[in-house]
Structure formats: structure tokens, C-alpha cells
């Protein structure tokens, strides 16, 4: 006789429990947290390097840099002046989860920190399922990618609060259509806040910095 045993639980309930704990901890410490996601090569680390340099006297920042292999990104952030930087090498895993963030935060001195950046693994699929306890997900894309990226990875754009379009200095050198990418993204998530900038030339970065300053 087959018997049905009800469980009715969220598959990621353990992750969600840890994420809720992280959210409480960061709220208590008055730390705003942003989870940066993108495809590999969109410019997450470069954007963070620029931000570290520009805002070093105005905002106390902490960074967690996730990578599948190597601590290269964390080292770049330290070289850019990051004082509180912790690498997470996932050893093959395609996303960060709340357990990794919880452990990382336990190793960091968060006194006085106002803004926490979590640089996720370069991947627009897997990180979308994992709540890290962040205030917002920020998706970074660049003009050397397809302007249909929001349509290809809708779950991530749906769950993000912000879309940063990087490498605007290269507009015109590819077939990337700025109006189309924005339209595609807004169709999936009408509440997306959009920044257009170039980390290389600096155009548009001031708007990004001002927004970060308004958060803390």
C-alpha cells in the first residue's frame, strides 16, 4: 500500500532561514547590502574597484568576492583600496549561498561598515535562486553582450532591483541596442532601476555613486 506523507516545505528553507538571519544582522548593524550578479566579464569587479576608489572617504565599505576558482577578484579589490575584503572560492559551485555568506560575515569586522557588496559568481542563472539576505540584487550587463540578455535570463532580471549597463563607451562598435535592452528588461521587471555607465571612461559613474550615497 502506497502511503503519502505530507512534507510541504520550501526546498531552500535552510538557505532562506540563514538568509533571514543575515538580513537581521545587517539591519541591526545598519549595513545596506547589494548582491552583484552578471555574466562573466560584464565588469562587476571593475565597477567595484572604481567605486572603492571614488567613495573611500565617504562610505565605509565591505566586500565579499565570490569566484569559482582563484582569489583574483578579491586581490583586485584589495589593491583598489578595499580594507574589508573576503574572498569566497566556491571550488566549482556556480553560485553563492547563504551559508557561505554567513561564514564569511563571521570572519569580517563589520564595525562601522555602511555598505556591503557581495560579488556573486559570474552566472546569470544559478545565483537567482539563492537569497543571500541582501537588500537588493544588482544585475550588471555590458554592451558587448546581446541586448536580448534580459529575455534569456528572465528569472535574474525579475528578481533584481537594479540593472547596470556597463561599457557604454563601446556603443556603436557592436549591434547592442540600448533602447531595446531597456525595453526587454522592463517588460520582465517594470520596477528595475537602470544605470548606464562606462567604467573605462567614467561616464555615468557619478550617477551610480550618488545613488549609493543615497542608500547609506
Amino acid at each position: 500500500m502506497t502511503q503519502k506523507i505530507e512534507i510541504e516545505k520550501k526546498i531552500l528553507s535552510e538557505n532562506d532561514r540563514l538568509a533571514a538571519g543575515i538580513r537581521r544582522l545587517l539591519k541591526d548593524k545598519k549595513i545596506v547590502s547589494l548582491n552583484l550578479v552578471s555574466s562573466p566579464g560584464s565588469g562587476k569587479t571593475t565597477l567595484l574597484e572604481k567605486t572603492l576608489v571614488a567613495l573611500k572617504n565617504e562610505i565605509k565599505m565591505a566586500l565579499i568576492a565570490g569566484d569559482v576558482q582563484t582569489e583574483n577578484d578579491a586581490n583586485r579589490l584589495i589593491r583598489a583600496g578595499g580594507k574589508i575584503v573576503l574572498p569566497i572560492v566556491t571550488g566549482g559551485a556556480c553560485h553563492l549561498d547563504a551559508k557561505m555568506i554567513n561564514e564569511a560575515l563571521g570572519k569580517m569586522n563589520l564595525d562601522g561598515v555602511q555598505l556591503l557588496f557581495i560579488e556573486n559568481v559570474g552566472n546569470l542563472v544559478c545565483p537567482s535562486s539563492y537569497d543571500l539576505g541582501e537588500d537588493m540584487k544588482v544585475t550588471v550587463i555590458s554592451t558587448t553582450e546581446g541586448d536580448d540578455k534580459p529575455l534569456k535570463y528572465p528569472a535574474m532580471f525579475r528578481r533584481s532591483s537594479v540593472m547596470v549597463i556597463n561599457k557604454t563607451d563601446l556603443l556603436g562598435y557592436s549591434d547592442f541596442d540600448m533602447a531595446l535592452v531597456k525595453n526587454n528588461a522592463l517588460q520582465i521587471n517594470g520596477n528595475l532601476k537602470i544605470f548606464e555607465l562606462s567604467c573605462r571612461t567614467g561616464i555615468g559613474l557619478e550617477v551610480w555613486y550618488n545613488w549609493l550615497k543615497s542608500l547609506v
Binding site: 505530507e6 512534507i7 510541504e8 520550501k10 531552500l12 517588460q187 520582465i188 521587471n189 517594470g190
Partner: peptide, 25 residues
Amino acid sequence: FIFVCPHCFSGDLEINQGQELDIAY
């Protein structure tokens, strides 16, 4: 993944299903 009302084309929607990731039984 087009989050636009097919009736009035508003994007102001309350999504109440489709995010499930549950173990039921």
C-alpha cells in the same frame, strides 16, 4: 516571461504563482 497585463498592458502586477520551489510529499 512577459510581465505585462494582456488586458490593459499595465506592468503593475501581483505575481502570486510560479516562484515555487517546494517539496510537497
